[in-house]
Simulated scan of single mutants.
Amino acid sequence: MTNSTDSPARTGRAAGKRERLMAAAAQVLYEQGVERTTIADIARAADVPVGNVYYYFKTKDELVEAALSEHTTHLKALTDRLDQLPDPRERLKGLVEAWVGQRDTAARYGCPAGTLAVELGKRTDGGLDPAVGHVIRRLLAWVEQQYRRMGLADPEGLALTLVGAYQGMSLLSNALRDPEIMTREGARLTRWLDTLT
């Protein structure tokens, strides 16, 4: 006798709902912010009944963690793709190009991890601060690794400079609702990368 809840079709649907909820959480929290987003908003975006959300995620904070996990997954996919390029300088330039490619979204909402970091940093419980920091640290570590492969001095400082420039151009683009800030500053970063020896 088998348990019908363990059937492959049912398991696949459950995994699909969880994945849809994670993707919806990442998108809706990014667009609306943590405080303005309700579990119902995420359920609606995932096309999942609200009551089903609690089967996968007991609290809104668990959905925030799921969104951060999605951001980590997206970052890993991007860096994996960039790692296929043979030259670390070209990888960094590809990263800048990817950032600029998101200029319209950045102008509207800012950087996904950066905006969550700022919002969660204002909460008094501080419970999710390390989780959002993990996403940014992962990016910093990858960028630092590229500078190390280039044989440059102070790869950690250079990584902070590049990621900080991205956060700044995302913030300004968002604050001024001007995607061309990302275009101009991205071109400046690309030229800067070409000067590093």
Rank of each mutant, 00 (worst) to 15 (best):
D6I: 03
A98G: 02
A153P: 02
T197V: 05
W99S: 05
T197G: 14
V118D: 12
S173N: 09
L193R: 09
L75A: 15
L193I: 13
A165T: 14
N3C: 01
R44H: 13
G16A: 11
R103T: 02
H74F: 05
A9K: 11
R108C: 01
K17E: 15
S4V: 05
Q167W: 02
V100W: 03
E70N: 05
I136R: 12
G121W: 07
R137A: 10
L152C: 03
G151M: 08
K93M: 13
S4H: 07
L158A: 05
G12Q: 12
A113S: 15
E156Q: 12
A165C: 07
G94P: 03
M182W: 00
Q167M: 13
N3F: 08
A187V: 05
R103Q: 14
A46C: 06
L92F: 06
D6Y: 07
D194R: 06
E65R: 14
R137I: 00
L176R: 14
R18G: 04
V53N: 01
A46D: 04
Y55Q: 12
R184I: 10
L92K: 10
Q84E: 15
A26M: 04
N174F: 13
P86K: 01
G126K: 10
T2L: 11
G12C: 01
V64Q: 06
E35P: 00
A117E: 09
S7I: 03
V163W: 02
D80L: 03
V64S: 04
R149K: 12
L63H: 03
H71N: 09
D41I: 01
D87C: 08
L21V: 08
